[in-house]
Write a protein that binds this DNA or RNA. Structure first.
Length: 818
RNA sequence: GCCGAGGUGGCGGAACUGGCAGACGCAACGGACUUAAAAUCCGUUGGACCUAACGGUCCGUGUGGGUUCGACUCCCACCCUCGGCACCA
């Protein structure tokens, strides 16, 4: 009698045994190749929803697959625990962020354990604990020492709701807070920055990593390198010491088409250059543009605005006098904060010129142009006209010629501009790692000595957001003495962006308890870099860019021997419910816990992988998961039924036995290949086909004991990464030694896996007219003769001329007739 | 607007390098088992048409064109969905 498949009993049983045996604990072992399989650690927001499972379960399958291929696999898990949500929850519920966070960690750890993943929990990392953030602070000091961290006053994104500044990457579409969707404002503040821009070109280079192309493109776009020329326009104004205004352009070929210059309203020269009679107008305009939200200001639909400031500059190439304007479509933060207006060849300048009635002079002629007015700006290349000695040049080479000329004359120089800004890491909030710096009236900015780390986050701070860091009001924290002169000093009260914590957590996993540094160099050398990183694409220009920068920075400080943290990256898609992204407000969040207790973790794991290609995501369907549960049930009964059945030593049907072995080896091959490429849906489809065949074999009783055993064992081994509990239980029940997860994947025999018989297709004029089973070794002549001798083919060829025969080995012949 | 991914039965999806479109699963329908239902097992299932039946013909992978003996696959133009970026000079 075959017992029922009861995941609710076998899953906890094996989980406990694996934990007790420390089956998933790993250590450095130079006798085996290592594999570092990392999944982005979750933020401690409360509950794991099915989206977390979609990230964790398939990556666990891959880690298990690598382990069964003989790798020494490091597969750790931890928690990203600092950050605003904890603080906001704390304010709302009146509980301390640490309490809230650790409760969530507790619950999420329990949920993660129910997944049955092979995490080495002894390496768990929680970023909000002093034993971790001590080293976050230590690394900050190293960056400061190396000149990669600096303090500066700059216009920054301010979220009035979160009451903190945000990095550019955390501002969606340049206008909204990533966390709370509130419109951000611009404020001038003294803040800490990391010099990520120094690494712009290296970050744009993905040639040494195997990442999805689209992430590379996203990072490249974000970095936004543009090669251009900084052109000097002459300024001659009594009482003004500046003798030029520099503009950045990628189109030096259009410099003879400049009919005006526009400065950003905040440009420092505006006040100096505005003529007395334009003063009122200009001041009004500046005030108006300050009043606007970033949303209004950056709207591309908005009509261009601006005003003349009553001053002129000289175009050094043409000698022309050019009026100076201000306009809020020019951004102070990009290039030089000033642009040359070339309305004929730039659509923004075109709009501006139309609005204010300025001349539009064509200097790059569109094909077939004969002097008529343009309807829109001509942005494409063309032939240069109205450009003095450069007339007649194709604009592409004109670009170079003018750049050369300007460099020679000292009118300008080639420069590179980036969209990427330095990474702003200060946050005016409580729940983060304190920035380990002290301000002393005598000594200025003084780093906290390494031996005084960690700078502990005081437990008793009043963490209501006020726009200033809550730590500012915690006198016992703020008041300190200068480490250098021992005089009175005050601590930095801002905390670090949490992306700083997640920029190095994967290093900590290599030696989590290490207390003489952030990591033990020996362990680091063995495990790092991460071989396979998996996670959502939403981190493309945040976490993934920051972490790459961070590693390059500490590489240059001599702390790590590599420059890329994640050799391979895979981005899973998004799992949706009822066609929509899951969200609490929509009420379509799928909680995995009830499915786990009803159907089992193995079913949930397998179902998530079966929905569709992992990188494309898919739709959670309550009915669909039943099919997976049924299949695992069938596997259960099939394997145990085979175990109970007394199969003959010699197969009653040799052909059928050979077919079984063929299918076994074909399946091993396909499943192994699919697992390696994260093609889980087809991997499972293949295993289903295989088990369907095994069902038939068993029902019809034509297998011998040995071939059956081979097939049944292969099925379990191939299923082990996906359904670890079921596979372990059946492995045990079929008399194998514990544990299936310490076994090697079965090897396939190419000869057995290859098809002996193939379905050969006979086409006439490209249409399938007949199919015949033939040996795979069939030759062209045989195939052709066979095709022509088929009765159906003969009937089709009746009264027609055979024009040619196309032969595709192992596939088909196509008879072309007239 | 720009960049990227995608569009295949009632649904999720498969199809290696241009060679049998729809694997595998869900749902649905029919049958077996059952007093009955659930569960389970067996079968049918892209559309239209021809045939008493066996079987066969035509159409069909977002739209329109092209290349080819042959196109879901390659090329050109376009439509739609999703993701990212967006006054970056």
């Amino acid at each position: 009698m075959i017992p029922r498949y009861t995941p609710s009993e076998i899953e906890p049983k094996w989980q406990e045994k694996w934990a007790a045996d420390q089956l998933h604990k790993v250590t450095e072992d130079t006798s085996r190749p290592k594999w570092y399989a990392l999944t982005m650690f979750p933020y401690t927001s409360g509950d794991l929803h099915i989206g977390h499972w979609y990230a964790m379960a398939p990556s666990d399958v891959h880690a298990r697959f690598k382990r069964m291929q003989g790798y020494n696999v490091l597969h750790p898990m931890g928690f990203d625990a600092f950050g605003l949500p904890a603080e906001n929850a704390a304010i709302k519920r009146g509980i301390h962020p640490l309490t809230w966070t650790m409760q969530n960690v507790e619950n999420m750890r329990r949920q993660l354990k129910s997944i049955g993943a092979c995490y080495d929990w002894s390496r768990e990392v929680v970023t909000c604990l002093p034993e971790y953030y001590r080293w976050t602070q230590w690394l900050f000091l190293k960056l400061l020492e190396g000149g990669l961290a600096y303090r500066a006053k700059a216009p920054v994104n301010w979220c009035p709701n979160c009451q903190t500044v945000l990095a550019n990457e955390q501002v969606i579409e340049g206008v909204r807070c990533e966390r709370c969707d509130t419109a951000v404002t611009r404020e001038d503040r003294e803040q800490w920055f990391f010099r990520i821009t120094r690494y712009a070109d290296e970050l744009a280079d993905h040639s040494r990593i195997e990442w999805p192309e689209r992430i590379g493109i996203m990072q490249k776009n974000w970095i936004g390198r543009s090669d251009g020329v900084e052109i000097s326009f002459g300024l001659d104004r009594s009482g003004v010491e500046e003798k030029e205004i520099r503009v950045f352009t990628t189109r030096p070929d259009t410099v003879f088409g400049v009919t005006f210059l526009v400065l950003a309203p905040e440009h420092p020269l505006v006040a100096k250059l505005t003529s007395p009679e334009r003063k009122t107008q200009v001041e009004e305009y500046i005030a108006a543009s300050r009043r606007q939200t970033e949303i209004e200001r950056l709207s591309t639909e908005k009509e261009k605005t601006g005003t003349f400031i009553g001053a002129y500059v000289i175009n050094k190439l043409s000698g022309e006098r050019i009026p100076l304007w201000i306009g809020d479509y020019v951004l102070l933060s990009y290039g030089t904060g000033a642009v040359m207006g070339v309305p004929a060849h730039d659509s923004r300048d075109f709009d501006f010129a139309k609005r204010f009635g300025m001349p539009i002079r064509v200097v790059v002629a569109p094909p077939g142009w004969s002097g008529e007015e343009l309807e829109t700006a001509h942005i494409e290349p063309g032939t240069m006209v109205n450009s003095s000695q450069f007339d007649g040049l194709p604009s592409e080479s004109g670009k170079e010629a003018i750049a050369d000329f300007m460099e020679k004359k000292g009118y300008g120089k080639r420069v590179v501009s980036y969209h990427l800004r330095d990474w702003l890491i200060s946050r005016q909030r409580y729940w983060g790692a304190p920035i380990p710096v002290v301000y002393c009236n005598a000594c200025g900015i003084v780093p906290v000595p390494e031996t005084d780390l960690p700078v502990l986050l005081p437990a008793d701070a009043d963490f209501r957001p006020t726009g200033e860091s809550p730590l500012l009001y915690c006198r016992s924290f703020v008041n300190t003495s200068c480490p250098r002169c021992k005089g009175p000093a005050r601590r930095e009260t801002d905390t670090m962006d949490t992306f700083m914590c997640s920029s190095w957590y994967f290093l900590r996993y290599a030696s989590p308890g290490y207390d003489r540094g952030p990591f033990d160099a020996k362990a680091l050398d063995y495990w790092l870099p991460v071989d396979q990183y998996t996670g959502g694409a939403e981190h493309a220009v945040m976490h993934l860019l920051y972490a790459r920068f961070f590693i390059k920075a500490i590489r240059d400080l001599g702390l790590v021997p590599f420059g890329e943290p994640f050799t391979r990256l895979f981005n899973q898609g998004i799992i949706v419910a009822q066609k929509h992204k899951m969200s609490k407000s929509r009420g379509n969040v799928v909680n995995p816990d009830s499915y786990v207790s009803e159907l089992g973790a193995d079913t949930v794991r397998a179902y998530l992988m079966f929905i569709g290609p992992w990188e494309q995501g898919g739709e959670w369907d309550d009915r669909g998961i039943n099919g997976m549960s049924r299949w695992l049930n069938r596997v259960w009964h099939l394997v145990l039924q085979g175990q109970e059945t007394a199969l003959p030593g010699v197969a009653p049907d040799q052909g059928a036995a050979r077919e079984l072995r063929h299918r076994t080896h074909k399946t091993i091959k396909k499943v192994t290949e699919d697992l390696g490429k994260f093609r889980y849906n087809t991997m499972l489809a293949c295993l289903m086909e295989f088990s369907n065949h095994l069902g038939k074999v068993l029902a019809e009783g034509y297998a011998d004991a040995q071939s059956w055993r081979e097939a049944s064992d292969a099925l379990l081994l191939l299923l082990a990464p996906t359904a670890p509990h079921l596979a372990e239980e059946l492995w045990d029940r079929t008399g194998h030694a514990y544990s299936i997860h310490q076994q090697h994947l079965p090897q396939w025999d190419e000869e057995l896996a290859a098809e002996e018989q193939i379905t050969f297709v006979i086409q006439i004029n490209g249409k399938v007219r007949d199919k015949v089973m033939v040996p795979a070794s069939i030759s062209e002549a045989e195939a052709r003769d066979l095709a022509l001798s088929q009765p159906r083919v003969k009937a089709f060829l009746e009264g027609k001329q055979l024009a040619s025969v196309v032969y595709v080995p192992q596939k088909l012949v196509n008879l072309v007739v007239k």
